[in-house]
Simulated scan of single mutants.
Amino acid sequence: MQVKCFWIMVLQFAFIASVVGQTLPIAEIRKDFKVGHKDEETCKKHLEALEKHADSPIERGYEAAYHMFMAKHTGNPFKKMSYFKNGRNMLEKEIKSAPNNVELRYIRLCIQYYIPSYLGYKDNIEEDKDFLVDNLYKLNDKNTKELIFNYLKGAKMYNDEELALLGR
């Protein structure tokens, strides 16, 4: 009887450990968003975690972004386009299902603002900039709101008047 109880406890512990081990470090993924296109190791690490565990629109939005970032980290032109197109389609799908999600619109704005024009993915820059001015202050997560604001402020996408509204 004691052996059976022991094995039940071991199995329960293993199950709990596997569930806890599957948490997605979304705060770290958010923080590293600004370097994912520059740092291949960071990009691969986060993409792998997101592909396995992303289960919310925001997590899938970051997964889409990291897919697009991978285009910069491969030399094969076919893989570049595949990473980019798949990521773009994933992000647009998430935005279509949650068009009022501030963080998804932030992700798209950042991607569209910085990618080369020849990729033809620049149609929503003004729309997303305006959306963020009108809605960033409504974000309940103070840390995420501050992270987004600081990134956008440093990116020089907004003039002083827009930044004042964005930072309210």
Rank of each mutant, 00 (worst) to 15 (best):
Q2A: 14
Q2R: 14
V3M: 15
V3R: 15
V3T: 10
K4G: 09
K4W: 14
C5R: 12
Q12T: 14
F13A: 08
A14R: 08
F15A: 09
F15Y: 06
S18C: 07
V19M: 05
V20A: 11
G21Y: 02
Q22G: 12
T23H: 13
T23K: 14
L24N: 04
L24V: 01
P25L: 07
P25Q: 02
A27R: 08
R30T: 13
R30K: 09
K31L: 05
K31S: 08
F33R: 11
V35T: 09
G36E: 08
H37C: 10
K38L: 14
K38Q: 12
D39A: 04
E40M: 05
T42I: 15
T42E: 05
K44G: 00
K45M: 01
A49M: 06
L50H: 04
E51D: 15
K52A: 12
K52V: 04
H53A: 15
A54C: 08
D55P: 15
S56I: 09
I58M: 09
I58N: 11
R60W: 08
Y62G: 03
Y62M: 12
E63D: 04
E63F: 04
A64V: 04
A65W: 07
A65N: 05
Y66V: 08
Y66Q: 02
M68R: 03
M68H: 03
F69E: 01
A71T: 03
K72E: 06
T74G: 01
G75R: 10
P77I: 06
F78S: 04
K80T: 01
M81G: 07
S82W: 11
Y83H: 12
Y83N: 01
F84V: 02
F84A: 00
N86G: 10
G87N: 01
G87P: 13
R88Q: 11
N89S: 07
K93Y: 02
E94P: 15
I95L: 01
K96T: 09
K96M: 11
A98Y: 02
P99D: 07
N101I: 10
E103H: 00
L104N: 02
L104Y: 06
R105K: 13
I107N: 13
L109D: 09
L109H: 04
Q112Y: 10
Y114P: 05
P116R: 00
P116D: 09
L119P: 15
L119F: 04
G120A: 10
Y121G: 04
K122W: 03
D123K: 12
D123H: 13
D123G: 06
E127V: 11
L132W: 00
V133L: 07
D134Y: 14
D134K: 15
N135C: 05
L136Q: 00
Y137M: 13
L139M: 02
N143G: 14
N143C: 09
K145H: 05
E146T: 10
L147K: 14
L152D: 01
L152I: 05
G154A: 14
K156L: 13
N159D: 14
D160I: 06
D160A: 12
E161W: 10
E161M: 10
E161F: 06
E161D: 15
E162Y: 00
L163Q: 00
L163N: 11
L166R: 03
G167Y: 08
R168P: 05
R168Q: 09
